[in-house]
Simulated scan of single mutants.
Amino acid sequence: MTDYLVCDESDIAEGGRRVVQCGQHEIGIFRIKGQLHAWHNICPHRQGPICQGHIYARVIEPVDERGQVRLLQYDEGDQHVVCPWHGYEFNLETGRCNGNDRMKLFRAEIAIRDGAIHVIV
């Protein structure tokens, strides 16, 4: 295994990310609810650059008593990244795909040493 120094822990703000090259691996590191989460930059659908997609709060479609959607709402506590190639959504904390339980992002190992983020691959 190889250890790559990425940046200071404080360099990734809440809701922010950093995508880095670690040897042959590209890794996206996100800060969600104060915690760092690292994912390999490969969408399990068609291997698109998932970590470079837009970050959104999960969309909720409230249905009224007639079964119709009135408007869209958002769950700010559930942040997702959306693959720029085909629109697949993944929870940034769990890596689970919204709408397809069989798909999940591949977590990357990180460590914090002396206030700096290291990726281990």
Score class of each variant (00 low, 15 high):
residue 80 H to P: 01
residue 15 G to A: 07
residue 97 C to Y: 03
residue 115 G to L: 11
residue 117 I to T: 02
residue 121 V to Y: 03
residue 85 W to K: 04
residue 26 E to T: 08
residue 36 L to P: 06
residue 69 V to H: 00
residue 69 V to R: 09
residue 11 D to E: 15
residue 8 D to N: 15
residue 69 V to S: 08
residue 99 G to N: 08
residue 23 G to F: 04
residue 119 V to N: 03
residue 92 L to P: 12
residue 14 E to F: 07
residue 15 G to L: 05
residue 98 N to I: 15
residue 119 V to K: 02
residue 93 E to M: 12
residue 113 R to T: 14
residue 112 I to A: 07
residue 116 A to S: 10
residue 33 K to W: 00
residue 75 D to E: 14
residue 12 I to W: 07
residue 10 S to C: 02
residue 88 Y to P: 01
residue 93 E to I: 03
residue 48 G to V: 10
residue 75 D to W: 08
residue 17 R to G: 02
residue 15 G to K: 03
residue 4 Y to N: 10
residue 51 C to N: 12
residue 60 I to A: 05
residue 80 H to C: 15
residue 45 H to A: 10
residue 43 C to Q: 11
residue 102 R to P: 00
residue 82 V to Y: 01
residue 91 N to E: 12
residue 80 H to L: 15
residue 23 G to Q: 03
residue 27 I to P: 04
residue 89 E to F: 04
residue 26 E to W: 02
residue 19 V to C: 14
residue 58 R to G: 01
residue 80 H to G: 03
residue 14 E to Y: 09
residue 108 A to S: 15
residue 89 E to I: 08
residue 98 N to A: 15
residue 52 Q to E: 13
residue 94 T to H: 04
residue 86 H to N: 05
residue 77 G to K: 14
residue 52 Q to Y: 01
residue 22 C to K: 07
residue 11 D to N: 11
residue 24 Q to M: 04
residue 95 G to M: 10
residue 101 D to T: 13
residue 73 Q to S: 14
residue 118 H to R: 15
residue 12 I to D: 12
residue 89 E to P: 03
residue 9 E to Q: 03
residue 74 Y to Q: 07
residue 57 A to P: 13
residue 28 G to V: 12
residue 17 R to A: 05
residue 109 E to T: 14
residue 22 C to W: 08
residue 40 H to W: 08
residue 103 M to Y: 09
residue 16 G to C: 01
residue 121 V to A: 13
residue 65 E to L: 08
residue 93 E to D: 06
residue 114 D to N: 15
residue 19 V to L: 07
residue 72 L to F: 13
residue 78 D to Q: 08
residue 41 N to Y: 05
residue 119 V to E: 03
residue 110 I to W: 03
residue 54 H to A: 13
residue 62 P to C: 13
residue 64 D to K: 02
residue 31 R to E: 01
residue 60 I to G: 00
residue 50 I to R: 00
residue 58 R to E: 14
residue 110 I to F: 05
residue 21 Q to I: 14
residue 50 I to G: 02
residue 105 L to P: 11
residue 93 E to P: 04
residue 10 S to H: 11
residue 10 S to A: 08
residue 98 N to D: 12
residue 81 V to S: 07
residue 20 V to Y: 00
residue 71 L to T: 06
residue 103 M to T: 00
residue 18 R to P: 01
residue 113 R to Y: 05
residue 119 V to D: 04
residue 77 G to P: 00
